[in-house]
Amino acid sequence: MLGAMSDLSKLLDDTVRPTVVKDLSDLVDRTVAAQSGLTGMAIKSAVAAAKKADGDVVSKSINRFLPDIVDSLAPHWNDYDAEQSAGFGNFLASRQDDVTNDVLTLGDRFAQQGPAAVQKVYSSLRGKTGKIIAPALPEFGDIVERHAK
């Protein structure tokens, strides 16, 4: 499905990218806000500290790493058949373990490029990341599909 990849690369187009970044940033904010317990407090504190240093840190990070995110999604997008699935979000959710591993691989790479404080927080939360990411996969996939069309 060669055409599918060209559609996914549309997310990087100058006319589409700002909206993709905004929608994904909003998803991150909602996902962080929905966290509870000790992990939720740790995540919320880490994000709040990052935002205190730079109010646009989430959107800047998404924008910076969007090409890597697109590359990571490409195999899933290429396997996706819109005719046979109930949306790319549900498709990603049905491959939750693989997608979560891909996200963790990206997260590892991103954290290594960040300051020591980010690396420390990320490493302490990494094991719980799958439980945080999984519920957001349907909406994440829907955002990607909406902008790739």
Rank of each mutant, 00 (worst) to 15 (best):
D29K: 13
K128V: 08
G3A: 12
L92P: 09
K131H: 04
V32D: 03
D29R: 11
M5E: 12
M5F: 09
A4E: 13
V103I: 15
A93P: 02
K52W: 00
S25H: 03
N78T: 15
M5H: 10
S85N: 14
M41T: 12
Y80A: 05
L38W: 05
A136L: 06
A148D: 06
K51V: 08
L38T: 11
G130S: 15
S59F: 00
L12H: 06
D68T: 04
H76W: 14
D54I: 00
Q96T: 13
E83I: 09
T19I: 00
G37Y: 08
G89T: 10
L12F: 04
A48E: 13
G130P: 12
P138H: 12
P138W: 09
L38C: 07
L137T: 06
R126P: 02
D26K: 03
S9C: 01
D29Q: 12
Q35A: 08
V21C: 07
S94W: 07
K149A: 02
T19H: 14
V144I: 14
A134N: 14
S61Y: 06
P67V: 01
K52V: 00
G107D: 11
K131D: 08
L2D: 14
T19N: 11
V57I: 15
D98L: 12
S124K: 05
S36Q: 14
K149G: 12
F140K: 06
K149N: 05
D68E: 10
G107R: 04
A148E: 01
R95W: 04
K128C: 01
L24V: 09
D102W: 04
D142N: 12
S9H: 13
V58A: 02
R146C: 04
Q119H: 07
Y80M: 03
L92V: 07
D79P: 02
G107H: 11
A74S: 15
A82M: 02
F91P: 00
L11T: 07
F110T: 10
G40H: 11
I69H: 01
L66F: 01
S72H: 10
A117N: 11
D13N: 12
A93N: 12
R64W: 09
V58I: 11
G89I: 03
I133A: 05
V58R: 03
S124E: 08
D97S: 05
G40N: 11
K44Y: 00
S36V: 00
Q119I: 05
L66V: 09
V28R: 03
L73A: 04
K10E: 11
E139M: 08
V47T: 02
S124W: 06
E145W: 06
S123L: 01
D71K: 14
